[in-house]
């Protein structure tokens, strides 16, 4: 059974916010100064528990995952547990990471537009060239490689040429999304962010690219609210009766998808910057009664929030990035009251 609008049940793991870049739009505000990292043993134990809770995919991001010293150990543990493992990287270190990259099932290199836009956002003159080299290199050795493209409003016109360029290098999947108003991006000018017509534009461009690039998987995070409303039964596992089980007896992945694990070891629903009021547990609490406590108490509030958010889709007739929409909706719900023990 599906859990939400994602095809898989996914853990977004941010093992560190250490990064060799400090991108102007970074939602996790990663940078070379963020040295903290998760303990790989704690992560491994948590992944075992999360596998039992029904999660099937670990998606690594950060920070730059290739800077996480225990990356190999975590990837190997995740594979042992039967997870499919994917990674988003800025590509700058890819040439030094062949052996660990060969362990993951798919890699997406992140892009923000053509060279000018990309390098300006990344604050580095060779960022685009090196990210492209990473795509080319991974494709050449037969690794499944894609591009995670996040665009400011001004960069939308660059998308068709960027898509051509990346597929020419060997990218086989493009995931396209607008820059989220989160983290460091909040400091960017208002012109960065999308108006309703811009969301429609990005959606239509992505649809057209899907036709123009027949051998490439094009996925746009922006979709018509009408489509989401039609597929609202995807949330039946959270909002409806799931095999007659009360909510506290369901698996965590029936309730929360995606699940985000932050570099500070906090489990959150949906996105890195989701309202702390809805935090699930800490990694340490996963081995005790944290998840059970969440299912009995916190999950009910999350259920109400998602229920209201889904209901708000009816008769809108516009376009949204669902996960960003949910996140902004969560911000409107009172002050954060964390369930995670200090």
């Amino acid at each position: 059974m599906r859990s939400g609008f994602l095809p898989d049940r996914i853990v977004h793991l941010h093992p560190t916010r250490l990064c060799n870049l400090a991108c102007r739009h970074c939602y996790s505000e990663s940078s070379p100064q963020r040295a903290a990292a998760l303990d790989p043993v704690v992560v491994g134990d948590a992944l075992a528990r999360l596998r039992d809770e029904g999660y099937a995919v670990v998606s690594l991001s950060g920070g730059e995952p290739l800077l996480y010293r225990s990356l190999r150990a975590v990837v190997e543990r995740a594979k042992e547990l039967g997870f499919r493992v994917t990674m988003v990287s800025n590509g700058l270190l890819a040439e030094r990471a062949d052996s660990v990259l060969s362990l993951v099932d798919a890699v997406a290199i992140s892009f923000d537009g053509l060279a000018g836009s990309h390098n300006e956002i990344r604050g580095r003159a060779d960022a685009f060239e090196r990210a492209c080299a990473a795509v080319r290199r991974l494709a050449a050795v037969g690794r499944p490689v894609g591009a995670a493209i996040s665009l400011t409003r001004a960069a939308i016109p660059e998308l068709p040429d960027l898509a051509d360029h990346l597929t020419g290098l060997g990218a086989r999947a493009l995931q396209i999304r607008p820059v989220a108003r989160a983290g460091r991006a909040r400091e960017l000018g208002e012109a960065t962010f999308y108006r309703p017509a811009d969301l429609a534009r990005l959606y239509l461009v992505s649809l057209a690219l899907e036709q123009e690039l027949p051998n490439v998987r094009v996925h746009c995070d922006v979709v018509p609210t009408e489509t989401l409303w039609q597929h609202r039964e995807a949330y039946a596992s959270l909002l409806g009766a799931c095999d007659g089980l009360p909510i506290h007896e369901r698996r965590l992945s029936d309730l929360v998808n995606p699940l985000v694990v932050t570099d500070t070891g906090v489990l959150k629903p949906i996105s890195y910057d989701f309202n702390r009021r809805f935090d699930i547990a800490s990694l340490e609490e996963l081995s005790s009664d944290g998840v059970r406590r969440y299912k009995k108490h916190g999950a009910l509030e999350f259920q109400t929030l998602v229920g209201r958010t889904v209901a708000s889709l009816q008769n809108r007739g516009d376009f949204i990035d669902w996960f960003d929409y949910c996140t902004r909706y969560s911000e409107a719900v009172g002050a954060p009251v964390s369930l995670v023990r200090a």
Binding site: L159, P160, D161, R195, R201, L204, L209
Partner: peptide, 15 residues
Amino acid sequence: LSQRLANFKLGDAVI
């Protein structure tokens, strides 16, 4: 088609 749609010369109202 993608370039025509992406280009801001095609105004918001049209999109």
